[in-house]
Computed example of a mutant assay.
Amino acid sequence: MNKNISLIVLLAIFSISTLKAQTSQSTKVLSKEKTTKMPLSHMAQTAKLIGPAISDPNWYNWCVSPIKGKDGKIHIFGSRWPAKEQMDGWMGKNAEIAHFVSDKPEGPFKYVSTVLKSSDFPHPDKMWAPHNPRIEYVDGKYILLYIFQTQKDKALMYTGMMIADDINGPWRFAGKNDGLMVENSKDPKHWTYGGVIGTDNPAFMKIGKKYYIYFKSGMPTQRTAKYGYAVADNLEGPYTLSDHPITDNIDYIEDAMAFKVKNEYFLLTTDNYGTNSGTFGNIILWKSKTGLDFKLADAKVGMRTILDYWGTPEDHKKLLQNEKHFEYSSSGKLERPAVLLIDGIPAYFYASAGLNVSGGENAETYVFKIDWANGN
Rank of each mutant, 00 (worst) to 15 (best):
E85D: 15
E85Y: 07
E85S: 08
Q86H: 13
M87S: 14
G89M: 05
W90S: 04
M91S: 15
G92I: 01
G92E: 10
K93V: 10
K93W: 09
N94T: 15
E96G: 04
I97K: 02
A98T: 06
A98N: 03
H99P: 02
F100A: 01
V101E: 10
S102Q: 01
D103G: 05
D103N: 12
D103S: 06
D103H: 03
P105D: 06
G107H: 02
G107Y: 06
G107L: 01
P108N: 02
P108T: 07
K110P: 02
K110C: 04
V112M: 12
V112T: 08
T114R: 06
T114N: 06
T114M: 05
T114C: 09
V115K: 03
L116V: 06
L116D: 07
S118F: 03
S118H: 10
D120W: 04
F121T: 09
F121S: 10
F121P: 01
P122S: 13
H123Y: 14
H123N: 15
H123F: 14
P124Q: 07
P124V: 10
D125M: 09
D125K: 15
K126T: 11
K126L: 08
K126H: 11
K126F: 04
M127I: 07
W128D: 00
A129K: 05
A129W: 02
A129E: 02
P130V: 02
P130L: 01
H131E: 03
N132W: 05
N132R: 04
N132S: 13
N132V: 05
N132I: 08
R134A: 14
R134G: 07
R134N: 14
I135R: 07
E136K: 15
Y137G: 01
D139N: 13
G140W: 07
G140F: 05
K141F: 07
K141W: 10
Y142W: 03
L144P: 10
L144N: 05
L145W: 07
L145S: 06
Y146W: 15
F148V: 06
Q149K: 14
T150A: 09
T150L: 09
K152L: 12
K152E: 15
D153I: 03
D153E: 14
K154D: 02
A155M: 13
A155V: 15
A155D: 11
A155T: 14
L156G: 00
M157S: 06
T159P: 03
G160F: 10
G160T: 08
G160I: 11
G160A: 11
M161K: 00
M161D: 04
M161C: 02
M161A: 00
M162H: 05
I163F: 00
I163Q: 00
I163H: 00
I163P: 00
A164K: 00
A164S: 12
A164H: 01
D165V: 04
D166A: 07
D166R: 13
I167K: 02
I167D: 00
N168R: 12
G169K: 03
W171Y: 14
F173W: 05
F173H: 03
N177Q: 14
D178W: 06
G179A: 12
G179I: 13
G179S: 11
G179C: 08
G179D: 12
L180S: 03
L180T: 08
M181A: 11
M181Y: 11
E183P: 05
E183Q: 15
N184S: 15
S185F: 08
K186S: 15
K186V: 08
K186R: 14
D187Y: 06
